[in-house]
Structure formats: structure tokens, C-alpha cells
Design a protein around this nucleic acid. Structure first.
Length: 658
RNA sequence: GCUGGCGUAGCUCAGUCGGCAGAGCGGGGCACUCGUAAUGCCCAGGUCGGGGGUUCAAGUCCCCCCGCCAGCACCA
């Protein structure tokens, strides 16, 4: 007897394995018609998968977001079939083709390169199959048969071998001339895939391993309705307008110059204002939370990085600086090369810091520490340089030189949990001020690690407890911890939903050991402190990049590079405009005077596109009454108010970080 | 780093088959003295990413390098 529990608690009983479609039919006629799949015991299945055991079911229709996975997975198969039809069944080898959060993709291995223009051709072939309404059909087969069917398809064979012995092997047919090794789920027939679009091609390593061959990946997306597809594409277009690289240029916030090198950021005056405002605030918040401000050098001896382990583990990402006695004789006729071989041989090396921890450690170590001093919390805006792979660079979000709001807490093991909680609270307070979207990930013990299992357990528990006690949602990412300790990473979302790690809390058992850190405990014994690396924003560059996208360039007034602009309606009122300008300037407002001899409309447009929060229009009326006519970027026209009234308004806004 | 695409004025972009480098915005000047998202006219601005090659002739075709974009890999 199979007992199926429905979402409303009702129980349906079946004598033999039953397909979802039949279960839906039992519930209602309309559900039978609208059902596209189901979630059974937490797993998405399609209409024709027989249910062989008792459990809970929720029938999915096109209205349920989960049903998109079924549609998109089917669209991936449809794509694969179309590519095989067009490029030859023999020539095309299939990789994998799953549904993703935003759509689907399929990986192909074929001799020709698929170009962006080819996508239209493939789409047309897909549409042809859709018109034919070719059916999807599931077939459970034996391993032997599977090996036979896929004997010419090395990728599928590899996938087949990876299926656990106790799991059944299924293939899905699309029509009668295409099948794919697949667990499902799928729609009933291709005719249901009405709204889809192929978006882009890209390379992707087989099984995500850079040692493997790179396959050609085609990305696409699919929706149940054409309108939903159009809306999605429109949203993507809109999101692209929020791209911090685009806005950064429009608002003249920062630049990255070929002459200087990739991934090296130049903050222009307006971007520098934003950065400085944030730094001022963050610095003050650290002080309030018991951190001591420090500064450490940008280059330090290579030997130090050997002690810390970075030289071994991180060398390929580090910039090195040789210090040499120049050999003038050997240099003759060799001006092109900065150093000759023998100079390099004799050089002693410094490294540009890729991290700030060793610097902080040296300060901790500079004198004996008592248990009474702990926790010691050091903080600096530490600018680090990392030689990131060229392909990973991305505007402000992934750079080679960046500044961390970096802090290190040296504490006793019994203080660990409280310290983590303090940092966690701080991070979330900060994210709240900016109203950023984020996800919390906990990285646990990786395969290669140092430190005792007990220490790991203690630290991991401390991290998780800190989250649990505050009731935060989080994901455990098994094995994602650093080799030296577990961590909490907080990923902030960019305009198109990509996740970027920012705030982080990392427990470290390694460095205290390597640098032989100690404190004298109550009992007079030397003990090893625990170290917590933490950053509240992470990298200031990345954080501001994310803020630009988050605000689409319209920064809250406290951060706006220009907070107000005074616009005289004609040159005749320049004198009064200047008076207003001076008054605001005196009050500490970042204000500009638009003294260009142009029409009001033009000046307002200019201020609007520069996303200046307040425009103060002044003419005869205002001069007469000593007022300003206020137009707010956010709230529209606010009418006339006295200069003082406006000052009160904007100063409050700035103070409250709005 | 890998796969594919791209690189023309400060910005956004056009440039056909290899045949005299263009537009709009922005910048400068002049006129207009203006009331809530673009006033008009004039002017300046280019080593067509860099180097090499093919050709009578290269922005355009070929090769190498640099940089950028998408994705993959990486991300202490």
C-alpha cells in the first residue's frame, strides 16, 4: 500500500506504483490538465515518474516557481537535440545540460565553433521541434544497455559510471531519434516549451575541472509564457544599466587604466568622496567596538611571508620586490631589462602584502601579553595587492589592488564565541544601513587542514552558535573553510544576481602557531591565543562597486559626491545663487553652483543625470523672500523653503545616513 | 589562465567590396537672460589599442602582443 499525503493533509492510497499524472487526476480534473510535475519528498519529479513509495506530494502547475526547473531542463534537451540535428549526430558529443536559477545550458563537444549568429539558426531548429510537439519519454534501462547506448559518447559514459550502484539508470527520449542519460524531470512534450531564448555561448571545462577539455556551452532561458520571457529579458537589460562600470564612468567615480595595469583602481574625486565618507564612518564604528587603529607597511621581507606560510601557499598570487646592488658594468647595453640575471641572483626579496595578518601579528608579538589584555582587537584599512588571474578581473568587484577594512582579534578560546557574535552583529548592522541583499555561508573543515579536530569543532560550533542565537539563515558549505580554520562568508548580490563575498569572519589556528603567539594566563602558564580575521565590508573597492549597483548610482545623501546644486534661473540671479551656495558650503554640504549660462531645464537635466539628490532653483521670487525652490531627485518638487529649513532637512538626512 | 567575442574623438557609436576618417553627446567661443529632464550658431578634437606582414593602396585582410566583455577555472 502506497500512502500519498497531499499539502492539505489529505491521504490518498494506491495499491500499485502510480504516476503523478494519475494522482493529479484523482485530485481534480483541472489539476490533471494543469499539472506539469510534482515535488515528492522534496524532489522534483515529472508527470510520468511512477511513485513507488509513500510520501508527501505537492503537484506543480506553471504557476509554481519550482515548475520552471522542469521546463528549463526540457529546454536543455531540446537544445541538445537541435544542435545534434544541425551539426551531425556523430560529430556532436554531449556534456551536461541542467536547468539553472535563471535558465538552462548545455555543454557540447564538437569540431566547429558555435558563434553568436549560429544561435538563431539553432533556435529555429528548436522551434521546429516544438511545433512537432515531440514527446518526452522516460525509460529505465539496465547499466549494460546504457553502456551500449552511450558507447560512442565518452562524457555520458563517465557520467553513467558516476551513478551510484543502488540508483536506477534512466534515459529520456525526445521524439524517437534523440535520447539522453537523464534523471529528469521533463515536460510531457516539446510543444510546452513555447517561450525560450538562447542567450550566449561560452567555454566551460568538462566537469568544471581546468585540467579537462573545454567544451562549448550554450546558455538560454525559458518561461511558460512569452510575456514572462520578455519581462525577464527586459529585467536583464535594465540590470545592465546598473552595472557599476557603466555608472562609474557616467558619474566619474573611478577609473582603471591600461597604462597603469589591469585591476588597479584610481579613485576620481567624486568616487573618493564616497570612499572617504564610508571609511570615516567605519573607522568610528570600529573605535566604538573596542578596536585599536594601526598602520602596517605595504612591503615586508619575503622571509616574513615564509613564516606565515603565504610564500608557500600563495606565492603565485603575490607581487615581489627585489632589492639589489646595481651592477653598473653589467647593465651596459641592457637598459630594456630592469634587472640582470646576476642582480636577481644576488637580490634579497620583499613582497607586497597580499594580506594584513602578519603585520598585525608582529604588533601583537611585540611584547608579552597577559590574559587580562585579551581580547586585543586591531584594525586598519589595509591595502593589499594580489596577482589575480587576468580572466577573473571585473571592474571594482575583482581587482588586483584593494583595501580591506581588516581587523584581527586575538583572544582566549573561551572568548571566541562572544567575539564572533560581536563581529556578526556589527556586519549585519552595517549591511542594514545600506539595505543590501546577502546570503550567509559557513565554510567547514576542508580536506587539507591543520589544527586538532577538537579545535575545529569548537570553532565551527562557535560560528554556527553565533548565527543560530541571532536567528540568521545560513548555508553550510562543507569543506569550504580555509585550511587554517572555519569561516563565515557573507556574499552580497550584484545587479544581475551574481554573488560576491564581502564580509567575512575566519577563525585561525594556524598563524598563532606559526608565529608562536602566546599570552600568560591566570595560572602563570603561557597559552596560545586564537586569532579571528574579520572584515566588515571586505574590500572597499568591491563594496562600493556593489553599492553603485545597489543604488543604481543614486547614493543616499550622506554618500552622494555632490549633495546639492544651486541653479539660478538666469545669470541675473547669480549673486543670490552664490549667497545660497556659500551658506550651504559653510554648513558643510557638498554643494555646487551651476553658473553656466543655460536654460533651467538644461541644468536640471544635467543634475538629474548626475543623480544629485537636491536641486535648489533660485530666481526673482526666491531672492525676494530669501528662499530656495527645492527639487529632490527622489521626491520630486518640494516647493519653496527658507535656506535654513532646507539646511535642517538635508543635515538631518545626512546624520541619519539616509 | 582557458574558450569565444570586441577595441575608431573625452563618452556612446557609424564607417558597405581594401580606395580622401564620420555623427550625436561632451569640451571651447559667441549670441540668447531664460522657472523644473536637452536654445541656436561657430570652432577644436584621431598614431583607428600597439607591433609586424600582404597590397599600388589597410580602420577594413593575415600574424604576434596588450587591454576589455561573457562564461569557465581560480578566489586566504
Amino acid at each position: 500500500m502506497i500512502e500519498i499525503k497531499l499539502p492539505d493533509g489529505k491521504l490518498l492510497k494506491f495499491e500499485k506504483p502510480t504516476k503523478v499524472k494519475e494522482i493529479a487526476a484523482k485530485i481534480s480534473k483541472s489539476l490533471e490538465k494543469n499539472a506539469v510535475g510534482a515535488i515528492f519528498n522534496g524532489e522534483i519529479i515529472d508527470l510520468h515518474t511512477p511513485i513507488t513509495q509513500s510520501g508527501e506530494i505537492r503537484i506543480l502547475t506553471a504557476k509554481d516557481p519550482e515548475s520552471l526547473e522542469i521546463l528549463r531542463h526540457s529546454a536543455a534537451h531540446l537544445l541538445a537535440k537541435a544542435v545534434k540535428n544541425l551539426y551531425g549526430k556523430e560529430a556532436v558529443k554531449l556534456g551536461i545540460g541542467p536547468a539553472t536559477e535563471e535558465g538552462f545550458y548545455y555543454d557540447f563537444d564538437l569540431p566547429e565553433t558555435i558563434s553568436q549568429e549560429d544561435l538563431e539558426k539553432i533556435e529555429r531548429e528548436m522551434e521546429r521541434i516544438v511545433k512537432e510537439k515531440e514527446p518526452f519519454r522516460r525509460e529505465v534501462i539496465s547499466r549494460e544497455k546504457a553502456r551500449e547506448l552511450f558507447k560512442d559518447d565518452k562524457y555520458k559514459l563517465e557520467l553513467l559510471e558516476a551513478i551510484p550502484e543502488d540508483e536506477e539508470v534512466s534515459i529520456y527520449w525526445l521524439g524517437d531519434d534523440f535520447f539522453d542519460l537523464c534523471k529528469g524531470p521533463h515536460v510531457e512534450h516539446a510543444g510546452q516549451i513555447k517561450a525560450f531564448k538562447l542567450l550566449s555561448t561560452a567555454g566551460a571545462y568538462w566537469r568544471g575541472d581546468s585540467r579537462n577539455k573545454m567544451l562549448q556551452r550554450i546558455y538560454g532561458t525559458a518561461f511558460w509564457k512569452k510575456k514572462e520571457l520578455e519581462e525577464h529579458l527586459h529585467r536583464l537589460e535594465e540590470a545592465k544599466k546598473r552595472d557599476h562600470r557603466v555608472i562609474g564612468k557616467q558619474l566619474d567615480l573611478f577609473g582603471i587604466y591600461e597604462e597603469a595595469g589591469p585591476g588597479l583602481v584610481f579613485w576620481h574625486p567624486k568616487g573618493a568622496v564616497i570612499r572617504q565618507e564610508i571609511e570615516k564612518w567605519v573607522e568610528e564604528e570600529h573605535r566604538k567596538r573596542g578596536y585599536e587603529r594601526i598602520y602596517t607597511p605595504h612591503i615586508m621581507k619575503a622571509e616574513l611571508w615564509k613564516t606565515s606560510g603565504h610564500y608557500n601557499f600563495y606565492r603565485e598570487n603575490m607581487f615581489f620586490v627585489p632589492v639589489v646592488e646595481h651592477d653598473e658594468e653589467e647593465r651596459l647595453g641592457n637598459e630594456e631589462v630592469p634587472l640582470t640575471c646576476s642582480e636577481i641572483e644576488k637580490a634579497h626579496w620583499y613582497a607586497v602584502k597580499p594580506m594584513n595578518c602578519p603585520g598585525h601579528i608582529l604588533i601583537y608579538k611585540s611584547q608579552p601579553r597577559s590574559y587580562r589584555e585579551l581580547p586585543i582587537r586591531y584594525f586598519e584599512f589595509g591595502t593589499v595587492y594580489r596577482y589575480e588571474k587576468s580572466g577573473s578581473l571585473h571592474g571594482l568587484l575583482r581587482v588586483r589592488g584593494f583595501t580591506q577594512d581588516d581587523g584581527h582579534i586575538f583572544c582566549r578560546p573561551d572568548q571566541l564565541k562572544e567575539e564572533i557574535q560581536g563581529v556578526m552583529d556589527y556586519i549585519l548592522e552595517l549591511l542594514k544601513v545600506f539595505k543590501l541583499d546577502y546570503v550567509i555561508n559557513v565554510g567547514t573543515k576542508p580536506e587539507k587542514y591543520i589544527g586538532s579536530d577538537e579545535a575545529w569543532e569548537h570553532a565551527t560550533k562557535a560560528l554556527i552558535d553565533a548565527l543560530e542565537e541571532r536567528g540568521f539563515e545560513y548555508n553550510i558549505v562543507e569543506g569550504d573553510g580555509a585550511f587554517y580554520g572555519p569561516k563565515i562568508d557573507i556574499a552580497v548580490l550584484d545587479a544581475i544576481g551574481r554573488k560576491w563575498d564581502g564580509p567575512t569572519i575566519q577563525v585561525d589556528f594556524n598563524l598563532p602557531e606559526r608565529f608562536d603567539l602566546s599570552y600568560v594566563d591566570k595560572d602563570g602558564q603561557k597559552k596560545r591565543p586564537v586569532m579571528v580575521h574579520r572584515a566588515i565590508m571586505g574590500s572597499i573597492e568591491r563594496f562600493i562597486g556593489l553599492l553603485i549597483e545597489h543604488y543604481a548610482g543614486l547614493f543616499p545623501t550622506w554618500l552622494a559626491p555632490v549633495q546639492a546644486v544651486v541653479i539660478p534661473v538666469s545669470d541675473k540671479f547669480l549673486d543670490y545663487a552664490d549667497k545660497v551656495y556659500r551658506k550651504l558650503k559653510e554648513a558643510g554640504i557638498r554643494v555646487e553652483l551651476d553658473d553656466e549660462s543655460a536654460k533651467v531645464g538644461y541644468k536640471i537635466r544635467k543634475a538629474e543625470t548626475q543623480k544629485i539628490p537636491y536641486m535648489l532653483i533660485v530666481g526673482a521670487k526666491e531672492k525676494e523672500s530669501g528662499t530656495v525652490s527645492v527639487r529632490s531627485k527622489r521626491e520630486g518638487e518640494l516647493g519653496a523653503m527658507t535656506i535654513q529649513e532646507f539646511l535642517d532637512k538635508i543635515l538631518t538626512e545626512i546624520k541619519e545616513k539616509r
